[in-house]
């Protein structure tokens, strides 16, 4: 079997807030393989945000090992982690986090600003344009965020996330600020990217969002509570059939359009 691209071994994370010690993660073991689409679920305080931050190399575990794509990132220094985030991880946030005065294209180019191998101006522009086309925004490259709808903003954010062809796409409540129709669109986009080979991790507390993933990892009190295929997770299962149906419809619509 192929080596998983993410291997977490006995990950713990301990915070100190004043005199209080918070055990956010109490020993997490998790493997995620290439081309998976995983939902991480849990109530607030379950440790899912800490796990996402750890997986996204924004934070280092207190103990344990994290191997990403064969590299032991849990032992890396801050600058090395920045490079890993730049090249191997794409983030999508609930509130989009676009720079308001920059055009869609400039927002998408942002990661190239911090990469030593950005290439020429035209190569950068071409890559950003490609990414925007992949998310279906090829015609709105010069719009600023305030000229875009919520769904379009999130598409720009996704284009920015996939620009460097990252090993993993981390999405933190990506549809939390979107209405249901737009939610479906964005989830279909994730599914399409996943079909194209992109590994995706979505942190969510909504079962119907998780239903679009193939695997659901549930956390409670800093430990993994369950790790099941979507259709076997008791709470997510009822939504799976609907999600599959929506995905099929979207794919057919795209196929018909193409």
């Amino acid at each position: 079997m192929e080596e998983p691209i993410i291997q977490l071994r006995s990950i713990t994370k301990v915070y100190r807030v004043g005199v209080e010690t918070i055990h956010a993660l109490r020993g997490v073991d998790l493997d995620i393989g290439r081309n998976e689409m995983v939902a991480i679920m849990g109530s607030s305080g379950s440790g899912k945000s800490t796990l996402m931050n750890t997986l996204g190399c924004l934070d280092r575990p207190s103990t344990g090992e994290y191997v990403l794509g064969g590299k032991l990132v849990s032992a890396m220094k801050a600058d090395e982690l920045a490079l890993v985030r730049n090249e191997e991880i794409g983030f999508v946030f609930q509130s989009f986090e676009l720079l308001p005065r920059q055009t869609a294209l400039e927002n998408v180019e942002l990661p190239l600003l911090y990469s030593a191998t950005g290439g020429s101006a035209s190569a950068r522009r071409r890559r950003a344009l490609e990414a925007l086309q992949r998310v279906g925004l090829g015609k709105r490259v010069d719009h600023r965020p305030n000229q875009l709808s919520g769904g379009q903003k999130q598409r720009v954010a996704i284009a920015r996330a996939i620009l460097n062809n990252p090993r993993i796409l981390m999405a933190d409540e990506p549809t939390g600020n979107l209405d249901s129709a737009t939610t479906t669109e964005i989830l279909a986009l994730f599914t399409a990217l996943n079909h194209g080979g992109q590994t995706i991790i979505i942190v969510t507390h909504e079962n119907d969002v998780a239903a679009h993933c193939r695997r659901v990892v549930r956390l409670r009190d800093g430990r993994i509570l369950s790790d099941l295929p979507a259709e076997e997770d008791a709470e997510v299962a009822p939504y799976v059939a609907g999600a599959r149906e929506t995905q099929r419809a979207q794919l057919e619509a795209q196929g018909a359009a193409a």
Binding site: A82, R85, N86, L110, Y114, S115
Partner: peptide, 14 residues
């Protein structure tokens, strides 16, 4: 914005 820049790979020096 600074948080975002760091998330997409900006080092402290940058």
């Amino acid at each position: 914005e600074i948080g975002l820049r760091k998330a997409v790979g900006a080092t402290s020096t940058a």
